[in-house]
């Protein structure tokens, strides 16, 4: 008879290897999609894409993540869907980037936000990896916070209050920073085993932190 302790040890080793594989694949796909998304953003900036096109891209990206990704996430087609999703969101950034590029310190604001987003992402995922802590207790808090922020954004569309938009952007940075901890810890602790889904979640956090940081930095830099 084999030693049960040895069996447990090999099961735990297999689990660690599987987790490391998901983590490695997630970061590899995330890097590739971020580069692709940045290229699409640069293309839409050069083409001076309008707000209408940007809105259509957002609707198309939402449709992909809502209806197509759940059906394809377990197959190779899921990777193509993630590239399409991130490409659409990147292309939709054109009007926002052009808006800031036309401002006095706009290019500096974009560069600062890019660097700032990278620091926040690397810092938070490094923290989650180093501590190995399970942040899944944040799930209810983060999702309900996101619902509140979306309701505030809905009100903000019609109320036109700059103060409300600043508060919303600050809240978005905090909530999606929490989502980076939440998603990374779920990969580490085996809560997510599909790297396509994991990449999509982390990409969305990085994307939203970048946009909100750009608005806050742009506001601070342009009086």
């Amino acid at each position: 008879m084999s030693d049960p302790r040895l069996q447990m040890s090999s099961v735990s080793q297999a689990s660690v290897l599987a987790t490391n594989k998901v983590l490695r694949n997630t970061y590899a796909l995330l890097s590739a999609t971020l580069i692709f998304s940045a290229l699409m953003a640069a293309l839409s900036t050069v083409l001076h894409v309008g707000h209408g096109t940007s809105l259509i891209c957002s609707f198309a990206a939402l449709a992909l993540i809502w209806f197509v990704l759940p059906r394809t996430a377990e197959s190779a087609a899921g990777i193509a869907v993630v590239f399409a999703f991130t490409g659409l969101l990147g292309f939709g950034l054109g009007p926002v980037l052009n808006f800031y590029l036309n401002m006095a310190h706009g290019a500096q604001a974009i560069a600062t936000s890019l660097g700032g987003t990278a620091v926040v992402f690397i810092g938070l995922s490094g923290y989650a990896l180093a501590t190995q802590r399970d942040f899944s207790f944040l799930g209810g808090f983060l999702f309900s916070g996101l619902m509140v922020v979306l309701l505030a954004a809905l009100a903000g569309i019609f109320l036109n209050m700059p103060g409300l938009w600043l508060a919303i952007n600050a809240a978005v940075i905090l909530i999606f920073s929490g989502f980076i901890l939440f998603d990374t810890s779920r990969i580490i602790n085996g809560g997510v085993t599909n790297y396509v889904i994991a990449t999509t979640s982390i990409y969305l956090s990085i994307y939203n932190i970048f946009i909100s940081l750009l608005h806050l930095v742009g506001f601070a830099g342009n009086d």
């Binding site: 310190h105 500096q108 604001a109 600062t112 700032g116 620091v119 926040v120 810092g123 938070l124 923290y127 600050a170 940075i173 905090l174 920073s177 929490g178 901890l181 940081l213 806050l216 930095v217 506001f219 601070a220 830099g221």
Partner: peptide, 17 residues
């Protein structure tokens, strides 16, 4: 870490202003 993110964002906003 969230507190550090808050300080970092405030710092970035202060630097660009």
């Amino acid at each position: 870490p969230i507190g550090l993110v808050v300080l970092f964002v405030i710092g970035l906003m202060w630097i660009v202003s």
